[in-house]
Amino acid sequence: MNSSPQWLSRYRRGQREQVWHELHQWGSAIRLHPELVEEAQSVCDEMARRARQNVEVVVARLTAAGYRFHENDDEETPVSCPHAPPTAQADAYAGWLRDRFGAVPMTLCSWVRLVGDVWLVGTHPEWPTSASADPLVIELEGSRHPDGPSLRDYHDEEWADWQEEQATDEDPGVFVLPVAPDRLHKENTSGGGPYGFVLPDGCVDGLFVGETTTSFVAYLNQVFGSGGFPWPTGSEGEWQVKRSLAEGLLPL
C-alpha cells in the first residue's frame, strides 16, 4: 500500500474524502510506521479544530435564536454550559484512555484534547421538537461537569464489567465506550444503549456506534450537515432551522 506524505496539506486543500479513504485503508497497521502516525495525527487534530469551530458556531447561533439548553430530565433542568472546552488535564486523560483500553482511535484523542464536551439537547423556540432530533452530544473528559462524578471512573467500571462478561459469556459482543445517551434518551423517553466508540481500536478513525455504526468522522459530517440535529422529526420549522444552523459549517 502506498503511503502519502502529503495527507495534511491535501486535507487542507479540500481532498478530505481521499485522505480519509487512504487512512482507513491502513487500518491499525499504521501504528507500525511512526512517521505516518505523526502525520495521520496531524490530520485528526486539524479535523478536531474544524469540528470545534463548528460546535462554537452552532452554540452561538442557537443561543442567539433563544434556544433553551436543558438536561434530558422531566424538569428540563437548564444547562448553562453546552460546550465545555478541554481542561488542562485533557492530554493526560487521552493518555489514560490509551493506557486503559490498549488502543484508541486518533480521532477520539484529538476530540478529547481539542474539542471538549458538547451537549446540544434542548428546545428551539421555532422548533419545539428539537430534542427529538438526536442533538449532538459527546462527553468524554467530563469537562462539562467538573464537580460531578468522574467520567474516568464510569468508563473504568464499564470496561471492567465488560471484561467480566467476556470471561463468562460466550458472545459478550464488542465493548462500546459510552459518550452520549441514545436518540430516545436525549428526548427523555425510554431508549437503548448509549452511543460510543468501539474499543480497543488502533485505527486512525474508529467506529462510532449511534443510530447506525459508521466512522466517527462520517458521523460528525452527518451531524454538522444538519446543523447539529441529524434525525428528522417532520415538524414545522425544522428544515428552516437546520439550514440556518448548518450554513457555512466546515466539512471534516
Rank of each mutant, 00 (worst) to 15 (best):
C81D: 04
N72S: 13
G196M: 03
P251H: 08
E46K: 11
G95P: 00
S244K: 15
G95N: 13
A246S: 15
E247P: 02
Q53N: 00
R52E: 06
Y195H: 11
N221T: 03
G173R: 00
G102D: 10
A133S: 14
P128L: 09
G202I: 01
T107E: 08
L32E: 15
P135Q: 09
Q15V: 02
W231S: 06
D74V: 07
S28R: 12
A40G: 08
P200C: 08
T233C: 11
E76T: 07
S4Y: 12
H21L: 14
G206W: 07
A48Q: 08
S215V: 02
C203F: 06
W20P: 02
E236N: 09
V223F: 05
E158G: 04
D99P: 08
L220D: 09
A131W: 06
P125Y: 04
E35C: 08
H145Y: 11
A48E: 07
G116W: 01
K186Y: 06
L140Y: 04
D74G: 10
R144I: 06
L151Y: 08
Q163L: 10
G95A: 14
I138P: 02
E56M: 09
H124G: 06
P251W: 11
G228R: 11
D169I: 00
G202C: 10
G148A: 11
E211Q: 12
H83P: 12
A180W: 01
G202A: 15
H21V: 04
A246F: 06
N72C: 10
D161Q: 12
